[in-house]
């Protein structure tokens, strides 16, 4: 294991966590979308680096998908939604940024603790990668939980998924990675379409999930 390759992979994964943190403290939708594009870019770099390190050309496909789809198409689409709905300036944190950051730090610590218990047999690159991936996943989930707006929730979900891709590509020789990333892209497309033109817009005036609550079953 080359020291440099390890360091670069480590650095890329670590910066993905960092970008996740950046996402956490964005309180405006438009800037959040920008940061997410950055998130996707870092992921692309990371995946590409893994493809290079592992000599796994199919991972380049994943990297391409991540770049084209997540760093370009989705942010553009989301920006259009946000502008169209006129909510690009809206603040939608449920808890304060400080609190969210604190929670995020806690989560990262948790994922480190959990992953460092993994015995030394596992290869260190993968281990570190996994800890970072877990952090990204947890931070994405935290984001989904602390945001009220559907767009930011989607972004949370996508960064969660970025964490998954990071983990999958970090797992050396894992089959089906490309398929999985495709499947997830489709999933996200569904969600975005759902918000954008499918039923949510058709039926609800705002994409704020609270508006949906009016139609929860059983409440007369």
């Amino acid at each position: 294991m080359n020291k440099l390759t390890f360091d670069i992979a480590h650095m890329l994964a670590g910066s993905l966590v960092l970008v996740s943190f950046m996402q956490l403290y964005q309180d405006r939708l438009s800037s959040l979308i920008n940061i997410f594009a950055l998130h996707a870019l870092v992921l692309t770099a990371s995946v590409a680096w893994q493809a290079f390190v592992q000599h796994a050309p199919h991972l380049y496909i994943t990297a391409t998908i991540a770049f084209v789809f997540k760093a370009v198409v989705i942010p553009v689409a989301l920006r259009r939604i946000v502008v169209k709905l006129g909510i690009h300036r809206e603040l939608d944190n449920v808890v304060g940024v400080g609190l969210a950051m604190l929670a995020g730090i806690g989560l990262v610590a948790l994922s480190m603790v959990v992953m460092l218990r993994v015995t030394a047999e596992a290869d260190p690159l993968a281990r570190e990668d996994l800890a970072f991936a877990l952090s990204v996943v947890l931070l994405g989930l935290l984001m989904m939980v602390t945001r009220r707006n559907a767009v930011s929730q989607v972004i949370g979900f996508m960064s969660l998924e970025n964490g998954l891709v990071l983990a999958a590509t970090g797992a050396k020789g894992m089959p089906l990675v490309v398929e999985i990333s495709v499947a997830f892209s489709v999933l996200i497309a569904f969600i975005v379409i759902g918000i954008f033109l499918f039923r949510i817009r058709e039926r609800f005036d705002t994409v704020d999930i609270q508006a949906l609550d009016r139609f929860r079953g059983e409440r007369q």
């Binding site: 877990l134 979900f157 964490g163 999985i180």
Partner: peptide, 8 residues
Amino acid sequence: VGIALALF
């Protein structure tokens, strides 16, 4: 979300 967790 469940899908994602299961994948992880």
